[in-house]
Design a protein around this nucleic acid. Structure first.
Length: 497
RNA sequence: GGUCGGAUGGCCGAGUGGCUAGGCACAGCUCUGCAAAAGCUGCUACAGCGGUUCGAAUCCGCUUUCGACCUCCA
């Protein structure tokens, strides 16, 4: 098992990964709030942590990947009306809350299967863990770090900060929080502005409500992740991931709650992915600049000139390091599509390559290829640098194409090096980065027979120098989505779009 | 206002002291009946100004500028 290093947001430095239990890794990632359709911004964390999870397994860890579904809804604006986000939307659409939640959960699952993201081992829902959340809140009250007001329970941040390093994760000073000039209604229940709700009393119009020791209500925003992560991964677990925008207050609150409830910090390594921006601004609901995944896949959006395959989007995300912002544009996505097609075709050619020499006739190239292959693991083990892995794979594309095209001698590389190259592409491009072909290999034998006939006819007309006919066949087939390619050796290959 | 993080070639994007990724686009060439694809070649950038150093995109300071968080947010 090679050494893995990655950036821990909590300590703000790269650290060597040392799991609590050797050979096992626990990973918790904040999942979606299923009150609406997923957009491009959501794709980033789930693709990022899918790769993290895949790489941990590649290194030999047994991984338990837990990602929650937030289906209980949160306050639209804390304190003011305590509107349950899910409940509110449900009324508008005249659906049962559960129906709405189910709809968007299904859409979410569908989209991320298209992205080839593996399903988490456990996908707990907030509504399914009300009991655990209530238990945890009770413990926090018993320990004196939460207080009950009018059926709601608040966490006493000030008291916590007196005894624990509150704000360390997000780099915040409590005094600044207390002095914030922002005036929110309904703050009078709290002892301090920085306090956050563990449980909220439900107003009469609130659809989603549960009985609790403090009356009917619903859980606060942060408690679900603490309750569910500790239930499935333990009171202290290895890695907690999520978007950078969740660092404060969500993750900071998780740390505070869990530290009181369990007596120690909940997480050893915090990982945060950066945002996707659009024209330099974060893509987010509140900015009204989101591109939904369905719009991306259909091309049905003013900013898009075409539809984009989920794999192109995945590739686009992985071309950038996860801690950098990633600026969206139609142009950038087009570039990714072309790039990915070229890389994938080179990969597909690998299998058809001659075996290589018993000894490499081009020692320099042979050594270079071996280096490129071996570096892939180094790059991944250095803070999951998918961008550098892809760069190395691209370095090998001209070598592969060159062998096929005859510009590089078939024996330039040794048989072992060719095999290493095959293994590297399989392992890193497919297994770890999780890339797949753009189109399923669904060609039927009937279609193949028809195409063979057309190719035969076209070859005959070419022999007669009847290029009008041969070009017509090629052009019409192209219109129908079948691209013919005249290979150097005189054969004709085709791809079906 | 407070805290934090950026500014890299036409575009996207790696990169933390020297060997100056990668992709897309563009130009020329090779191959080709013509295309497409592929290959080769070219394009050498690090916001500005100082400083440290033999040497800085990379370290330090200042300036300009963009953004994130502080409120639901991936």
């Amino acid at each position: 098992m090679s050494e893995l290093h990655f950036y821990n947001s909590y300590t703000r430095q790269k650290e060597k990964f040392e799991p609590i239990t050797p050979g096992y890794a626990g990973l918790y990632v904040c999942g979606p709030t299923v009150s609406g359709e997923s957009h491009l911004g959501h794709a980033r964390p789930y693709v990022t942590f899918d790769v993290v999870q895949r790489y941990l397994r590649h290194l030999g860890y047994k991984v338990r990947y837990v990602r929650n579904i937030t289906d209980a809804g949160h306050f639209e604006e804390e304190g003011r009306e305590a509107i349950d986000k899910v409940g509110e939307k449900a009324k508008v659409e005249k659906m049962e809350p559960m129906e709405l939640v189910q709809k968007y959960t299904n859409l979410f699952h569908h989209a991320f299967r298209l992205f080839n993201c593996e399903d988490p081992a456990i996908e707990p829902t907030a509504t399914g863990h009300i009991v655990e959340q209530i238990n945890m809140i009770e413990t926090i009250i018993e320990k004196g770090y939460a207080y009950v007001v009018n059926g709601s329970v608040y966490f006493d941040v000030k008291k916590y900060a007196d005894n624990y390093p509150y704000g360390k994760l997000s780099g915040r000073v409590l005094d600044d929080q207390l002095e914030t000039t922002r005036e929110l209604d309904g703050q009078e229940e709290k002892r301090n502005k920085a306090d956050f709700a563990l449980w909220k009393n439900a107003p009469p119009q609130h659809i989603m409500r549960w009985k609790s020791p403090w009356g009917e209500g619903f859980p606060g925003w942060h408690i679900e992740c603490s309750a569910m992560s500790s239930k499935y991964l333990g009171e202290t677990f290895d890695i907690h991931g999520g978007g950078m925008d969740l660092q404060f207050p969500h993750h900071e609150s998780e740390i505070a709650q869990s530290t009181i409830a369990h007596g120690h910090a909940p997480v050893n390594y915090w990982m945060h992915n950066n945002m996707i921006t659009i024209n330099g601004k974060k893509m987010g609901k509140s900015y009204n600049n989101v591109i939904k995944l369905s719009e991306l896949f259909s091309g049905n959006h003013p900013l898009l000139t075409q539809a984009y395959h989920p794999m192109v989007v995945r590739f686009y995300i992985l071309q950038t390091h996860y801690r950098s912002t990633l600026d969206f544009s139609n142009e950038a996505l087009q570039a990714s599509e072309r790039a990915f097609r070229r890389l994938w075709e080179a990969y597909m050619l690998l299998d058809k390559l001659p075996a290589g020499g018993t000894e490499a006739s081009d020692k320099t190239l042979d050594a270079q290829v071996i280096t490129w292959c071996n570096e892939c693991e180094e790059f991944m083990s250095d803070d999951f640098n998918t961008a550098k892995v892809l760069a190395n794979l691209f370095e090998m594309a001209p070598v592969i194409n060159g062998i096929k095209g005859g510009q590089v001698a078939a024996t330039a590389l040794s048989a072992t090096t060719i095999a290493l190259m095959k293994a590297t592409f399989k392992t890193f491009l497919e297994d770890i980065l999780g890339m797949q072909a753009l189109q399923a290999e669904q060609s039927s034998s009937k279609l193949n027979n028809v195409l063979s006939l057309l190719i035969e006819i076209r070859n005959d007309s070419k022999k007669r120098k009847d290029f009008a006919t041969s070009d017509q066949i090629r052009n019409k087939l192209a219109e129908a989505g079948v691209l013919l390619k005249d290979e150097k050796d005189g054969t004709v290959s085709y791809t079906i779009e």
